[in-house]
Design a protein around this nucleic acid. Structure first.
Lengths: 339, 339
DNA sequence: ATAATATATGCAAGCGTTTTCATGATGTCA
DNA sequence: TGACATCATGAAAACGCTTGCATATATTAT
């Protein structure tokens, strides 16, 4: 294996000078630099990252921690983040966690063993951050969960304003004249996440404003953010309350499941039951009928998060908490109620 | 920061002994082990991975290189791989490449800087491997591309038998009585990948067998593996050749686009045009109509790949090339032609 | 009891870098 | 011309860990 010492020997300079060339240190004679660079090119030498980061006590990588990759919405954001990282020539390392694993513990482990420069959390539980995040000292960003209340000065957050997005979704249904509305998704369990709490809160606020009845018993079906679970929950809800004429699904995957559930209950979308989703995944545009939704701006979410982190790891700026605008996407899945 | 030396001091033993405890080396007194482990637990000490792998000259991580994450099929496999890695307590690092980047170069770079124990390539171009893979010396696995012809003894591969899968797909259409069949997906450019070449070859073989006419001009529309491109290509094909009564889409995403394209051309699926896809993503089961497809066994692809790699990095077994069986999934998107 | 073996631990070198400090060469200014 | 700043380089220590070797103690065989 070729090391910096080999390059030193070949070039006739010391390892120190070679190191300075590699790291673009200014104090090196242009001619020397040229010679050494030539040899590095010839030999194809690549410095050993372990040695480098052992010495530097901090590595150059950014670690992204994704909690729940099954969420295809996260996959989209992750993909778009890669692009921004690439533009900036950043080395990224991705860790995937399932729902049972603790994101803050995983982050702490990564920090103590791998010494990343910065951390991005894609998803996660606000409670965990509240309780344990103080352990983390590197600049971090929390995406899709709002950390503005937590007061950590090394934690930015980028989110969609879910309360207001959910309001728009339900208002959309109300505007069409619906007054028997079901909500599908999330969970009553408080720990399940800020996200479903916000979407539920926003939805209920609009229902209340319009004096539209809502009970957990008759108008709500909790479920995970998948097509399968959306299907199951919607079928159950329609069985309990066949009078429902419109459904607000807390994610598009749930909405896709809901559409099939309505059909399998012998009804049709949107004639008998309207459906509106949330997120704005590509598929809504291809489903039959096209599903109305609240589109989150994944591109901006990804770009702003990465750019904020890169700025903060280099120049110690303070953390920010930003809401990225959403867009209401009309679709064929919402129509006036029948009667 | 707490180091192994701190633990040594606290416990009264030497760093060597602490190291042996950490690495479960047998030659250490159970009582000593107990004491040292207690101190490690108390202090929350975690060994510095950079130092460890500097000394060991090879790291414990497996690196997964994903080329083209926009392929949601890969995302599924990646997710399932994570599970198998987790079961085996393996540390994984994922690198995402876009289509313009060279997977073998990226792998070489990762090897020389990060020293992974093993490599998994999710997707990639067979030509690249043929030309450059000799640079790579660590045990590797190529998933979804068949490397059996390449003769590298450190490269296994796990694939679906695409030729035969495509045969089944087209046979399925033929069995319903179709004889004016279009094929959508892939590219005529040979370098675009073994995958589309195989699927096209299999499809054509069945067409030939049944003396069903096929010309690139009238029966084929190349496109990328996305809904958008599938839509565009299908619309163009239907315009050129309105007589087509059935479409074999080379992926399910393409099929989803194709279904919408048929509708937008004023026809319906499956009454006017039947559609069959390939891959077996979850959407096919929720689309209206449900789309018939050839389901690749992502779970097995993921599990066998990871398990093979783990076996090979630990015990130097020889590389294998395995075909994972597919399943034909019937759907509502295929029916008899109208006339 | 002595020798031989097995077991547990310490010592110290070394993995491939970076970086501080010292040094020598060159240039500048009064 | 001497004093001093500037620039380029080398020498060597250090980062935190592993591991081969030497050593000390405990165990067993003779």
């Amino acid at each position: 294996m070729t090391t910096i010492r080999d390059i030193a020997k070949l070039s006739g300079f010391s390892t120190g000078t070679v190191s300075r060339v590699i790291n673009n240190h200014p104090d090196v004679n242009p001619a020397t630099r040229e010679k050494i660079e030539a040899i590095i090119r010839e030999t194809g030498f690549q410095p050993n990252a372990n040695a480098k980061f052992l010495k530097q006590t901090i590595s150059s990588t950014i670690t992204v921690i994704v909690k729940g990759i099954q969420n295809s919405f996260f996959e989209t954001i992750l993909e778009e983040m890669q692009e921004v990282f690439k533009e900036n020539g950043e080395e990224v390392s991705v860790i995937f966690l399932d729902e049972t694993e603790n994101e803050v513990d995983a982050a702490e482990h990564a920090c103590s063993t791998r010494k990343p420069r910065g951390l991005i959390f894609l998803g996660g539980n606000i409670q965990e951050f509240r309780k344990n995040f103080e352990k983390i000292t590197v600049p971090s960003v929390l995406v899709t969960v709002d950390a503005s209340q937590l007061g950590y000065d090394n934690l930015s957050s980028f989110t969609t304003d879910d309360i207001s997005g959910a309001k728009e979704a339900v208002s959309y249904l109300v505007r069409f004249g619906h007054s028997r509305i079901g909500i599908v998704g999330g969970s009553l369990d408080e720990t399940s996440g800020q996200l479903s709490t916000s979407r539920l809160a926003g939805a209920r606020e609009i229902l209340d404003t319009h004096r539209i009845p809502f009970t957990f018993e008759n108008n709500y079906a909790p479920c995970r953010f998948s097509m399968d679970d959306g299907y199951r929950a919607t079928r159950e809800l329609l069985q309990k309350n066949p009078g429902i004429t419109a459904i607000f699904a807390m994610s598009d995957l749930i909405a896709v499941g809901a559409v099939r559930a309505v059909r399998d209950a012998g009804k049709s979308v949107p004639e008998d039951v309207s459906v509106i989703g949330y997120d704005g995944i590509d598929y809504v545009n291809y489903s039959v009928p096209r599903i109305a939704t609240i589109r989150q701006n994944t591109g901006e979410l990804a770009r702003r998060s990465v750019e904020d982190l890169l700025l903060r790891v280099s120049y110690s700026r303070s953390a920010v908490h930003e809401k990225i605008p959403y867009t209401v996407i009309a679709g064929e899945s919402v129509a006036k109620p029948r009667d």
